[in-house]
Design a protein around this nucleic acid. Sequence first.
DNA 1: CTGAAAGCGCTTACAG
DNA 2: CTGAAAGCGCTTACAG
Lengths: 328, 328
Amino acid sequence: MKPSIKDVAAASGLSLATVSRALADNGLVNEQTRQKVLAAAEALGYRPNLQARRLRSKQSQTIGLIVADIRNPFFTAVSRAIEDAAYREGIRVLLCNSDEDPAKEAMYLRLMQEEQVGGVIFSPTLSAAAAIAGTTFDFPLITIDRALGDADCVALNNHEALDKLVDHLVANGYRRIGGLFGNTSATGQARHDAYVSAMHRHGLTPDAHRLVPTMDAAQQLVGDRLDAGDAPEALIASNGLTLLGAMRAIRQRGLRIPDDIALAGIDNEAWTELVEPALTVIGQPTYDIGDTAMRMLMNRIHEPALSRRVVALSGELIVRDSTRPRTA
Amino acid sequence: MKPSIKDVAAASGLSLATVSRALADNGLVNEQTRQKVLAAAEALGYRPNLQARRLRSKQSQTIGLIVADIRNPFFTAVSRAIEDAAYREGIRVLLCNSDEDPAKEAMYLRLMQEEQVGGVIFSPTLSAAAAIAGTTFDFPLITIDRALGDADCVALNNHEALDKLVDHLVANGYRRIGGLFGNTSATGQARHDAYVSAMHRHGLTPDAHRLVPTMDAAQQLVGDRLDAGDAPEALIASNGLTLLGAMRAIRQRGLRIPDDIALAGIDNEAWTELVEPALTVIGQPTYDIGDTAMRMLMNRIHEPALSRRVVALSGELIVRDSTRPRTA
DNA sequence: CTGAAAGCGCTTACAG
DNA sequence: CTGAAAGCGCTTACAG
């Protein structure tokens, strides 16, 4: 049988209480006593039972992380940052994929309550707000990438990002600039609005599409536009998948980037640099987003009364060949 | 305060035992009684405390997953498959990144014991074998991608994969075929050996390098070979990062693929299809690997006495332009 | 089918 | 600084 704290107590000739204190290293134990306990524990190969510790101490040392899909490079990078930070603090991370499915989101949020987590970091869908409106949680919630109710939030500065993109294209001589934005997340909405206002600032007419943010949908939509012969001079795609779909549609028709149509997007995924021509993008501070979310969560766990904070982190405009100055 | 099972018992006028049985839905409860309990629980907003349940029942309904780095697309895909399977079974997954660091591996393995997990899926480093040689765990261990001691293992059929790659290159007229293999994992070793035997089978002389499996190392090494003027006719890179490094070195020097040097690799990462020319690769059955690992783990949890099994899954040769038939 | 009681392994006031 | 005792919230033989 696995040795318990009781066995360590017996082996070291001390009481349960003392052994517990020595092992958890929380105060008030004679140094010699502590050494004796440690030696006995070592000899027995004692390992604490975290279930018992958590039940009794009411501290789970665990946080939840609910992302849309870990295979999305954005979330992969953010998750890694969160886990690094958690590791440093001795905290466990429960990772869940919601697949942008409100039912899964609700289920995982409920699970988090049952796990007695200290807090949750979450990338909610648009409909999450409605679904969890009534519910109140026992833990603080930090959202990443997208806002939700009155939860703290850390995300890309979308407004600034779209400004940079539109400014860059305009500076390079493009005027009819189209935009592709997701319709399942608040992010798509935010980027759309930022795009529209940036266009207006330049006295240009917005030409935006909201669509399901998948490669296929974007490829289809852009293809149709191209086939109909009313392609814009430049196109901005609001995330990695739609950017990829747009590029495929353009290539498929034998058109040249940027000569026939310029292309830019958000998310500096590895492939955007490797394709020909390389694509101009806004690189998100992914690691920083994860790290900041973790820091905000720790803060709020320790000081629940803090007022709500929304942190917008700046992205970096990475200029590549897909948006070279217009020659025509 | 959060309602406990006690509150539900009081509200429904039943005993703790009956409420527990009704809630956990394990046998022997009158249907009407069950309904009454469920209604009371619902009304109170009762949520079970999983810490207590696990402590008492000795079943954690949790497994551990220790991968080298979740940002590696191979592990990202495998993890997702494991999580999907776990979700279906109502099991939680504890995800950890070892960074190929034996100390972190040992730490996380110890943590898994403390968490009382039912089992662990693990991608061990080469040195893990030595580090955990003495230790014996309370749970079954399944390794993915790499073998370890007498643990069950599921991985790509490396032998077959290298055979396919070498056969393909030979069939397309290449004879001086070089190979780049990682030196930190058993996988690199296995692929190296498979490559050597495939070359011998064709009566060709192997020309293999073992190196730190990073982009920079591969770029440096391939660059040096090219500069020294003794480049092979074709090059096989044993994983995504070394493949990328090799391609960069070749491009940097203005050489053409495949005319000056053909290039092929393992891991069908998204970018390999998007670059110019697209790269020939072995696509790993990533989702299948994760799914199979999970199935094997469940099997072994239920039947610990099973003899060891090693599952080798076939990869798919995806032929693209980087290995077109040799013209010279 | 239901209930009273013991106990999972730990921590934490409370005395001393 | 150390120990005896209670209790975290649940499940599970054991009776009835």
